[in-house]
């Protein structure tokens, strides 16, 4: 079973103001607050004046940049307690977004991936979006057998909360599902599991 070498994992960017933007929509989670602060500092006052920042303080590592973001002058800041809430706010903002909107995403892979799903639904092009990964590389995993999604997976083998099977996380990422692939780890001989290892998260 092939589980090494990730060719499908997204390649991330470094957030920087996109000069072509007429509106700037920036959404971050947890450690993603840090690149967001840097992005805002790199913006001109005029760009900050047309920027909306959505920040979720939910974090796997416990890092929060809420206080620092509050201290930035002249931005429209929306604070959320959870990633789900932040994504809902993003959805609402995208539903009324106009041409010239530029999207900035920062945070965990699962968060960026699910935000990308929303952006794709609203027809944003890849060149209208920048993504910067921050914090832990914990994985969001899709179970191929029961269709359940599990957030924050750190081990190569884990038990699927959906179907109870022990899954091995393959190094294969689907942008459409915003998740890595999990398949039954002891598929060939029950109980014969591959080596348990920390994911190169």
């Amino acid at each position: 079973m092939l589980i090494t070498g990730i060719k499908s994992r997204p390649v991330y960017d470094r957030l920087a103001p996109m000069a072509s933007g007429l509106r700037h929509l920036a959404i971050a989670q947890g450690s993603g607050g840090q690149p967001m602060l840097r992005l805002l500092a790199d913006m001109t006052p005029a760009q900050r004046g047309v920027a909306t920042v959505v920040y979720s303080s939910e974090s796997f590592t416990g890092n929060s940049y809420e206080a620092e973001l509050r201290a930035v002058d002249g931005i429209d800041l929306r604070l959320c307690a959870s990633n789900v809430e932040a994504l809902q706010v993003l959805d609402d903002l995208l539903s009324t977004a106009k041409m010239g909107t530029r999207l900035y995403l920062a945070g965990s892979e699962g968060f960026i991936g699910t935000a990308m799903q929303r952006a794709t639904e609203y027809g944003l092009d890849r060149d209208e979006i920048l993504r910067e990964h921050a914090g832990s590389f914990v994985r969001r995993v899709w179970c191929a057998h029961c269709n359940a999604y599990t957030e924050n997976v750190t081990q190569r083998i884990f038990r699927c909360p959906g179907c109870g099977l022990d899954l091995v996380v393959r190094d294969h990422y689907s942008s459409r599902l915003a998740a890595f692939q999990g398949v039954k780890a002891d598929g060939e001989v029950p109980g014969e599991l591959p080596e348990i290892e920390e994911l190169d998260t």
Partner: peptide
């Protein structure tokens, strides 16, 4: 492989798991 998983993937992405090709 999974069609649900691979749908929407680019050429290099859906060939990702194949060794040596890259």
């Amino acid at each position: 492989y999974s069609l649900r998983f691979n749908l929407g993937m680019r050429f290099f992405e859906f060939h990702g798991p194949v060794p040596k090709l890259h």
